[in-house]
Design a protein around this nucleic acid. Structure first.
Lengths: 273, 273
DNA sequence: CGATTCCTTGAACTCTATCAATGAGCGTGG
DNA sequence: CCACGCTCATTGATAGAGTTCAAGGAATCG
């Protein structure tokens, strides 16, 4: 793997991003935060490389911190379906359930950077002290993952092409916002229309036409891999988008504000090179 | 709840069914088998009743032992999507991840009977002795559940109506066979065509036409809620159906044959009244 | 026997896929 | 610097898969 020759604070930003996400899922104390801050073992993966291979346990578990990946399922005739996207802050193979199975491959859609999540995995396993905070966060993350999977089923099963695209964009915007990589109206979308088609169960051509329509209607724009939501309210109405409500998972009081405040994400860079 | 006024051995059959399924997922020793055999707290649920309500923890966790249920997601305009079916032997809310979330309701599609799974839940939680066998089985069951969810995504995203129906039937046949409720060529299907449509993302009318076609081609028949696969090989070819491979989850040697032999399911009754 | 519920069938329509071709952007090498 | 090859986006024309509307039949039940 190539050495990391970018901003010196790259690793720090990465761990902050993970911490930011976990804190949105469960209260995270100083001890748990220290575990996150200690993560290292940066790996860089080239586009199209396989991050997770079916039937092969993920060794070791990792956090994706830069770039996008997708869980993909193939049919023998070449059709493929993207089951879900893996975005910065998401884990690969952290939950035992999460990956070894599924017989679906996870591939990098862009250049991807991952961190070794073994310390978190260990902390989760030996259900010790405040480390159970990490266990709770991991469970919440798995719940979230399932939530997005169910959203995907709803999109594919009962929404029109138009609704599917809107819904997917709202989901991505929401997910990226929780890790500080999107604003209320903008987010990076480093996907080809073919990838979009494989996620929404549509043909490339039709994805293109829906995007044209959305632009024509001035609901959004998409240039240089950046989506701008011009009418977020209208879009979420079209899609009937409902963001997941994390509150049911936050059994305890929400995270200590003091801790939260120490973790300010720096700017809203795209996180995509 | 109505008292159970059917075969005296009903509860015994139910626990055998669960044991049968768990043994297909992980080695189950005598101690763990005893936990299963001790399950009680039979409840009867009427068709259309809610077994699991979104945002409400399942209390207590249960095993479905008779009948069919479905996890359902609604849209405000009345469209609904069935995310997956819950068949005899499946758990409701056993895995922490499994249900409290998802914001999807589980409804009984037929008359349903459930057993209180609390003893199993406790055994899984306090990761004691051979009880970890139950934990392993529970994890494997959760993996399986995810597998079926991914199959559903593939069906909805990239298969034609014809393929979807075939694929779904192969999945159901396979799942019912693992609990002794189906043969190689026959299984009960207590679903209306509307339910089938809501699962496959199709319209009722189109489901009807696909079924007509499959009958006309003599690939299967469907009468009185019984599906007969006349050409299982052809059907699984059409659907590109691949049954989940449990071997990756069976880390240890397969279940003790002596124990297996004690658990003979009685006949192949439909289990559906 | 009427009232439901579910299944079946036909006809018209529409959404989405497929086929085919063109254009824009980009990196490479001569 | 430009030509070439490549990938990706775009557009039109056509075809097909699946939906919607509407109505009739079969089975069940009180």
């Amino acid at each position: 793997m190539k050495p990391d020759r970018r901003l010196p604070s790259a690793r720090g930003q990465a761990t902050e991003l993970i911490l930011h996400k976990l804190m949105s899922l469960a209260p995270i104390g100083a001890a748990a935060a220290a575990v996150i801050a200690s993560l290292n073992g940066l790996q860089v993966h080239r586009p199209d490389s396989e991050l997770v291979t079916p039937r092969t346990p993920v060794t070791p578990p990792r956090f994706l911190v830069v770039g996008w990946a997708a869980r993909v399922r193939w049919m023998p005739d070449g059709r493929r379906q993207i089951v879900g996207f893996v975005l910065p802050g998401d884990a690969l193979g952290l939950q035992a359930r999460s990956h070894p199975i599924g017989s679906c491959t996870t591939i990098a859609l862009t250049r991807v950077e991952t961190l070794d999540a073994t310390p978190v995995h260990k902390a989760v396993m030996m259900e010790g002290h405040a480390r159970s905070e990490l266990a709770e966060a991991a469970r919440a993350a798995a719940n979230l993952e399932e939530y997005y999977l169910l959203d995907q089923v709803l999109r594919l099963g009962r929404q029109t092409a138009y609704e599917r695209i809107c819904h997917l964009f709202m989901e991505i915007q929401h997910r990226l916002m929780t890790v500080g990589l999107a604003t209320e109206t903008q987010f990076p979308l480093p996907l080809t229309q073919e990838t979009l088609a494989d996620s929404t169960g549509l043909s490339i051509v039709h994805v293109n036409r829906i995007l044209q329509q959305l632009r024509r209607e001035e609901l959004l724009s998409l240039r240089n891999g950046i989506v701008t939501l011009r009418r977020p309210d209208v879009l979420s109405g079209i899609a009937d988008y409902r963001p997941p409500d994390p509150s049911p998972w936050l059994h305890a009081t929400s995270a200590d504000p003091a801790v939260v405040r120490t973790v300010r994400l720096t700017g809203s860079g795209s996180g995509l090179t």
